[in-house]
Design a protein around this nucleic acid. Structure first.
Lengths: 212, 212
DNA sequence: GTCTATAGCCTGATAGAC
DNA sequence: GTCTATCAGGCTATAGAC
């Protein structure tokens, strides 16, 4: 592999620069408006040189898709670590996820809305997304075990319902008031209420472990 | 105005054709991929001729935006008429709204996600959307009056929460499984559960009118 | 890995004849 | 209202020199 060679290092730095610039461009002209020429222009090279790093425009999108999901997953997991296991961890993780989405809107649009004609993410780029779904499911299971939610929460349906609530909040905020902050947003600020609705849909039975 | 002249009539027919074709094109190449040239090609005229009907590409999008919201509102209201006033009417209307979105995905994306770089809908094109929000609010008020929901439902918050639930369901379905039907969709089929969550968030007090 | 050069397309939009 | 002609520019992608 020789991953650590100076040449490899430099190459990876360039790739990172390309990705950063691409995100900037999407923020300015819209996700679907991303062009390789504009990226090259800002990087100070000629468009053909980009093809040494990405074989096509759609390949760049694939990498951006993967990058976005990876960042999203990282923030989600950091959020989970920042609170008590079980329901608090899940709530904290989802908050972190929402903050990431508002702070990285072009990537969030790419991940959640698929606005690029002809682009279908590769299985590889999709992997972090699946990992997150599994995380959510596991955390729901934790919450059930701790008697914080009814067993129905840790099912396909529970995961789907939760995803509807979270993406609904974010979609409305991103589409209607993208410049409001996560905390002040007219939709995202409803997070606690929305999450309470989820909890109330799967109310825990009392004293499940006899350890209260 | 002379709205009924034969010339006006023919012109409006052509405009309708253009809009229909534009929707077809968006369905094939993505909303942001719509081009005037392709529309002209399918209509059997040259691109410059289109400018007699729409002064620019963005003007076409504006008209499509308005058309979509108008259709959506029509279906929503027809749904409302098809059930008892109050909560049933609202549920029926929202179901009709969801069906319209799944059956008109390119327009739905244009309305709900704003995927076209540089396009901001005009106030005029936005009017039907505001009308629908007012309808929802009025119907929530009806439901409260009838003792089917708590008063909190007919507030800014109630409208926002409901919009989060509905658009969340549709966003997830459109982005992740656009070819599933409204009734079978892994997300849209959760409609009754989701709606029940809304109702349970604003539970009615008992016997509000003494007429039970 | 970078460049020049270029192919080969596409687009939105305008001018002006008919 | 339709056309031809055209502007003026964009883009992805490839070939091949250095």
């Amino acid at each position: 592999m020789a991953v650590g060679s100076r040449r490899e290092l430099r190459r990876n730095q360039t790739i990172d620069e390309i990705l950063t610039i691409a995100v900037d461009v999407m923020a300015e002209v819209g996700v679907a408006g991303l062009s390789l020429s504009e990226v090259a222009r800002r990087l100070g090279i000629r468009p053909p040189s980009l093809y040494k790093y990405f074989p096509s425009r759609l390949a760049l999108f694939d990498r951006l898709f993967q990058l976005g999901h990876q960042q999203h997953l990282n923030d989600f997991r950091a959020g989970a670590e920042a609170a008590e296991p079980g329901l608090p961890a899940l709530l904290s993780a989802l908050q972190a996820s929402g903050r990431w989405a508002m702070a990285n809107q072009p990537l969030a649009q790419l991940l959640f809305w698929r606005p690029v004609p002809g682009f279908e993410p590769s299985a590889e780029a999709f992997a972090p997304s699946q990992a997150m779904v599994e995380d959510v499911r596991r955390m729901l299971g934790d919450a059930v075990e701790r008697g914080q939610l009814a067993p129905g929460a840790a099912t396909e349906e529970g995961v789907a319902v939760l995803s509807v609530l979270v993406t609904g909040m974010l979609s409305q905020q991103l589409a209607n008031a993208p410049r409001e902050s996560f905390d002040q947003g007219r939709f995202t600020r409803l997070g606690p209420q929305i999450f309470a609705m989820f909890r109330d849909r799967y109310p825990p039975t009392e004293d499940p472990h006899g350890d209260s």
